[in-house]
Amino acid sequence: MISLARKSILHEWRRFAPAIFAIAFSGILLVIQAALAVGIFSTVAVYIEKSDAELWVGFPGTPSIDQGRYIPNRVESFVRMHPDVARTEPFSWAGGVWRSRPGMGDVSVVLAGIDSRPGSLTFAHAVTPVLRARLAMPGAVLVDIADRDKLGVGIGSSAEINGRKVHVVGFTQGLRGMGSVNIISSLATARYLDPGLQSADEVAYYLVKLRPGADAAKVQQALSPKGSNIRYEAWTAKDFASRTTHYWLFESGMGTAFGLSSLIAVCVAIVITSQTLMAAVAASIREFATLRALGAPTSHLRGVVLQQALWVGVAGLVIAGILSALVLWLAKLAHIPIALSVPVTAGCAFLVLCVAVLSGIAALSQLSKADPAALLR
Rank of each mutant, 00 (worst) to 15 (best):
Q173T: 15
G213L: 10
L223P: 08
W235G: 01
L187R: 02
A222K: 03
S158V: 14
G170S: 11
M178F: 15
T189P: 00
F171W: 02
K226I: 15
D194A: 11
Q221S: 14
P225S: 10
T189N: 04
G163T: 07
Q220F: 07
G163R: 00
G156S: 07
Y205E: 01
G177Q: 06
G174A: 01
G177C: 01
K226G: 13
S224Y: 06
L210K: 04
Q220G: 07
V168Q: 01
K218V: 15
G163I: 08
K165S: 14
L193A: 00
G156T: 06
A234I: 04
E202Y: 08
V166D: 02
V166F: 06
A214L: 10
D215T: 06
A188R: 00
A200N: 11
G227I: 07
A188G: 06
A159C: 03
D239A: 13
Y192G: 02
Q198W: 12
L223H: 04
Q221E: 15
G179S: 08
G196I: 07
V219D: 01
R176C: 06
S186I: 09
Q198H: 11
G174L: 01
G179N: 06
S157V: 03
V153N: 04
D201I: 10
I155E: 11
S157Q: 01
T236A: 05
T189F: 03
S199T: 14
L207G: 07
Y206I: 02
K238Q: 13
A217R: 09
D239P: 00
G154H: 02
Q173F: 15
L193R: 00
G154I: 08
T172A: 11
S186V: 10
L175W: 06
G196K: 08
A222R: 00
V219Y: 00
V208C: 02
L175M: 15
I183Q: 03
K209A: 15
R176D: 09
Y192F: 15
A234H: 01
S224R: 09
D194G: 08
A217C: 09
K209F: 13
V181W: 03
N229S: 12
R176M: 13
L187N: 00
Q198C: 07
E233C: 05
S185F: 06
S157T: 03
R191N: 09
L175A: 08
V181L: 10
V166L: 08
V153T: 06
V153I: 13
Q173D: 15
Q221L: 14
I161P: 07
I183L: 12
I184W: 04
I230R: 10
P212Y: 10
G177D: 14
K209L: 15
S224M: 08
A214R: 05
D215N: 13
R176H: 13
Q220W: 02
G154C: 01
R191Y: 09
S199I: 11
K218S: 15
A217K: 08
F171D: 02
S224L: 08
M178Y: 14
V169C: 05
G213V: 11
S199A: 12
K218N: 13
N162E: 09
S228H: 10
V166Y: 04
G170E: 12
W235A: 01
N229W: 11
L175E: 03
G227N: 06
W235F: 13
L223Q: 03
Q173K: 14
T172H: 10
N182M: 08
Y192L: 12
S185G: 12
T189D: 02
I230L: 09
V219C: 03
V169K: 01
M178N: 10
Y232V: 09
Y205C: 03
